[in-house]
Design a protein around this nucleic acid. Structure first.
Length: 423
RNA sequence: GCGGGUGUAGCUCAGUUGGUCAGAGCAUCUGGUUGUGGUCCAGAGGGUCGUGGGUUCGAGCCCCAUCACUCGCCCCA
């Protein structure tokens, strides 16, 4: 193994890649801000129990995918595998219960020791939101609407569909769990080893397993439906969410197999998926977690949120051009380099994007200007320096004029090449 | 974690049954054009064939291991 390779499952982001990431994060934040969400940045690592307590011991994320290590002080800390636990911890340790409702947006790197694949890395990035302290189904609607709004703002290549489901409240879920167990337990032998294990820990998860075995398929297909076990309150809640989405003209499909394993999830679960990313089809997912903050030791507080995978969205995005084409300053000979440097500085101060090369004759510098897609070249030779002028060449049209150095910005504006200066 | 596939120049890839097979295009650099780019022409540089072993007279090609990527499972964003 070469030590000069990046660690497995990690990536350097540059050029087009990082432009896409920035664009996704900026768009997500901009739209979220319109909905009243404020940014929160929690630490990249937390005490291990922040995650182990919230994600539970049945979750693969906790049981085998976390980057956990001991500090010199003997504390166990973990690189965050997801964003919600950190926000919930911040809510508790900051005593924010007095300030609900709270709307948070976050972005950043997450870490999971999974087997890498396209759209699945060990260090990856998410943007996400959490809405804390609102019990009403209106919160679910808003959070889903925000997600849909962001996704449509990104102009993605490929269809994205929204699926939702209800996990009901505690009572409904307990009843359904019992029903599933009594449905599957007598035919346990038809289930795969994985599903037999789930039967004990997490019977809901059996519903969304992909199996090829006919008998198992049939068994899953004939399982009782959650709908029948939702109590009235849960049913009303789910209906309110669906009505709310319909009122906003947001298309969705109810998918009874869409489940969450952890106990603190309740009511709404939703996923935005695409067919263009292979096995990594989920692009954004979330749900309601009314039990989470209490389970972590805070005051009972309802919450709902989602997270989206930046890498996955980036894979679906069209090309992002660099923000601004530069102006290239080109001294004809070394004698003009000092003046050229001063002019470069002045134009940058005036708010222009200016590039100057550091070597080569004029022909090479022109080539470089072309390669970096400069909009115009400012040519400074002996004559120009003597007269306090510059030769300005429009690199798209080939048009070329001699102007006073002080008039450069004006001429660029006339050509439509000079963006409004920040000044 | 499990099961497949792939790995040759900076990039995209060709390399027939192991015996001039180390190549092409693009990119880069140089020159044609020492005050004018994008086109064109000519030329040049660049590869321990992912890495480490093994088989063989001989391995890019076969075998083993390993690393990375990739597809599916799993899990999830």
């Amino acid at each position: 193994m070469s030590s000069l390779q990046p660690v497995r499952g990690t990536h350097d982001l540059m050029f087009e890649d990082i432009r896409r990431h920035r664009h996704i994060e900026a768009t997500a934040f901009e739209v979220a801000a319109r909905y009243g969400y404020a940014e929160i940045a929690t630490p990249v690592f937390e005490f291990t129990e922040v995650f182990s307590r919230t994600l539970g011991d049945t979750s693969d994320v906790v049981t085998k995918e976390m980057y956990t290590f001991d500090t010199k002080g003997g504390e166990s800390i973990t690189l965050r595998p997801e964003g919600t636990a950190g926000v919930a911890r911040a809510f508790i340790s900051g005593g924010l219960a007095q300030q609900t409702p709270l709307k948070f947006f976050y972005r950043g790197a997450m870490f999971r020791h999974e087997r890498p694949q396209k759209g699945r890395q060990r260090q990856f990035h998410q943007v996400g939101v959490e809405l804390l302290g609102v019990e009403s189904p209106q919160a679910d609607v808003e959070v889903i609407a925000l997600a849909a709004h962001i996704l449509s703002s990104l102009d993605l290549n490929g269809e994205i569909t929204l699926e939702i489901n209800s996990l009901g409240d505690v009572e409904s879920r307990a009843a359904y769990r019992e029903a599933l167990i009594s449905h599957f337990a007598p035919h346990k032998n038809y289930l795969s080893a994985e599903n037999q294990e789930r039967l004990g820990k997490n019977p809901l998860r059996i519903l969304d397993s992909k199996t090829e075995i006919v008998d198992e398929k049939l068994l899953i297909k004939t399982a009782p439906k959650f709908e029948a076990y939702l109590n009235e309150a849960s049913r009303n809640f789910f209906k309110a969410v669906q009505d709310g989405l319909a009122a906003l003209d947001i298309k969705f499909k109810v998918n009874p197999a869409l489940v969450r394993g952890l106990d603190y999830y309740c009511h709404t679960a939703f996923e935005f998926t695409t067919g263009v990313l292979g096995a990594q089809s989920t692009v954004l997912a979330g749900g309601r977690y009314d039990g989470l903050i209490k389970q972590m030791g805070g005051p009972p507080t309802s919450g709902i949120g989602w997270a989206a995978g930046v890498e996955r969205l980036a894979l679906m995005m069209r090309e992002i051009a660099p923000a601004q084409r530069p102006i290239a300053i080109i001294p004809v000979s070394p004698a003009e380099e000092t003046v050229a440097a001063a002019l470069t500085h002045a134009l940058r101060q005036a708010g222009l994007t200016v590039d100057i090369g550091y070597s080569g004759n004029m022909g090479k510098r022109m080539k470089r200007a072309d390669k970096i897609k400069a909009a115009a070249a400012v040519i400074l030779g002996g004559d120009e320096v003597r007269d306090g002028t510059a030769t300005l060449r429009n690199l798209d049209s080939g048009e070329q004029v001699n102007v006073k150095q002080a008039d450069l910005a004006r001429q660029l504006t006339a050509w439509g090449l000079c963006p409004p200066s920040g000044a």
